[in-house]
Structures are given as C-alpha cells and as structure tokens.
Design a protein around this nucleic acid. Structure first.
Lengths: 154, 154
DNA sequence: ATTTAATTGCAAATTATTTGCATTTAGATT
DNA sequence: AATCTAAATGCAAATAATTTGCAATTAAAT
C-alpha cells in the first residue's frame, strides 16, 4: 500500500512510456519476464499487434497471460486498443503524439497516419452535446484500398 | 436478372435508403417478413443496435437470421458497423449525412454527433500515404463520460 | 533466507459469430 | 391460382475470441 512514489521519472503527462521496465515500476507492477517481453515487443512494433501476433512471437508465453497483460496495461493507459476490423483486438503503445491508421479492406495492410487534429474538435462537440460532460479519447480509422490491392481491382 | 430499375427513386448517391421494402427490391433481395422487421427496427432506431438488441425486440426471429441479414446488408452498404467498445457489433442505417458517436465509458450511453468534416482530410492523408490508393470509409468515435456518470465520479 | 501478494499456466467456461443442412417461402413463371 | 426454384430461414453444431477458477510459481519486500 505504501508505494514509494518519489517521482524520479520525467515531468510529462501521466503515462508517457520510456521503456518497458520503468513503466512497470512506475505502476507498481511486477516486472515479470512475460510482461517485459510483451511490452518490449509492442515497443518495437511500428504497427498494432493482435494477441495472436504477440503469441506467435512469444510462443513460450501462455496466451491467457497475454490477454491478461494487455487488458491490464490497457486499463493503466499504457496500451490503446485499435479497431482494424480484422475480427479481433489489436494493441499498441500509447505514444505522446496521437496518430491514426489506414486499413486496406482487401488485404490486411495497415499504415500509420502521423499527426491528428481531432482533439481541437472535442470542445465544440461537448458544447453541442446534450448528455456528455467530457471526452477522454477518440478513435479514428480510415478504411480503403492500398495501392497493390487497387491494382488487382475488379 | 432483369431488374426493372427504371429509377423512380431520388437522384442521390447509390444506396440512400428511403424505407425498408424499396431498398430490398432495389438490391434484388427477397422482402421476407424477417428482413422487413429487422430493417424497420433499424430505421426507427436513433442509435446503433446490437444483434441482441434487435433480437430482444424481435424474439420470434432466430438470431442466426439476424446475423446473416446484418452482414448481408452491411456488404450491400445499407448498414454500417459501429464500434462502441461494448464487446459486440452494433449496426445502423447508412444515412446521407455522415455522423459520429459519443460513448460513455462508465455506463453504456451513446449519443449521436451530427455532421462530420473528416472527409475533407482524406485527400491530404492519401497524398502523404506511402501505400494507400483510396479511402472509402472512416470510423470516428469519441469516448468520454456522460453528465450522469460524471456526477457519480470518484 | 523468508514471506506474501501478485502473476502465471492449464483447464474449462462464456460470449460472439459462423457454418451445414433440411425445410420453408417469396416471387417469377406458367 | 398452381407450380417452380433459388433464396432465405431455423435449428444444431462448430469455431473463434476472450474470460474465469484455481493450484503452483515467483518478484520483490522484509
């Protein structure tokens, strides 16, 4: 209960991850090899990963452990769940700079879109809303065809 | 095959639904009572419905039939699938004017946000993209707290 | 070295969704 | 109106994603 949180960490907003181990410490989570491996993988991935994707690269870790860790890290705000319409969840590290994705609806290609100006809309939306008080997150994905699939068109 | 499509319908884009029966005819689909009921329900709903939501209001229709019809109508562009993070799909009629949703992450409240200017971003995004040729759809949802849940805050 | 709560792995349950197949039926044809 | 046929339905069973229970293990505090 007496978490020695003497803030030796950087001064930016709550959970801007530096690297796996410090993150876990900061949250008071045990740095198990499984956790470090999962987080490490996500840190090095340029695109969101599915449970299976993680599982394939870390076959010695039980998928249940991956499920539990991802949803835990999701709650803690370290991970974000991305909807790619592939029939299962995908996760990525929450980075300082917000971004979105382009998803090919023909093949499974995903590309990151840098930058995001949506947040500036949020105040306006709330002003117009009848029932809502605050917005803490948004999801924006673009679905289309990648160049390759566009060529194979019919 | 000889669908008597003599365009008595309005002159706007491909599938802007008027009402259940005409839509089905236009697509060459049988107007079964089940289909009409499902479409009718969605037409009258101001918010996206889940399979269960539809099922509850139409208990005499087998859920499998609802699954099959929603995914069929989804492919045909009559319905859109909305991601509310409730653990299952939600569907709504595709209307002329694009819109988005506010979803309370504490209770399950959903509110519609009228209007959308995201499409004007699409060209810019494609110009910057390395692999993508076209965008035909986007999903934008805002997650936050509704006023009621905000009061019950902790 | 000891302790303990957190974490893991395995088995089994749950939930969402899909598929196979025999029966029914909307709508076209006569 | 009776007949025909492909499309659509309902039921049972399969699959896929995710969650839960519990005993065994382990990180990190003492």
């Amino acid at each position: 209960m007496t978490a020695s949180s003497e803030a030796t960490t950087s001064p930016h907003s709550p959970s801007l991850p530096d690297s796996p181990a410090p993150i876990l410490q900061r949250l008071g989570l045990k740095a198990t090899p499984q956790r470090l491996a999962i987080l490490g993988l996500l840190f090095n991935s340029s695109l969101p990963l599915s449970i299976k994707g993680i599982s394939k690269q870390l076959p010695h870790i039980d998928p249940v452990t991956i499920y539990r860790n991802t949803s835990f890290l999701l709650e803690k705000g370290i991970l974000r769940r991305v909807e790619l319409r592939h029939g299962h969840a995908h996760y990525e590290i929450v980075k300082a700079q917000d971004h979105h994705h382009l998803i090919c609806t023909a093949c499974a290609r995903v590309e990151e879109i840098a930058g995001c100006d949506i947040q500036i809309l949020e105040d306006t939306i709330l002003k117009k809303s009848k029932h809502f008080k605050s917005i803490h997150e948004h999801a924006l994905e673009f679905y289309g065809l990648c160049k390759e699939c566009s060529k194979l068109a019919k």
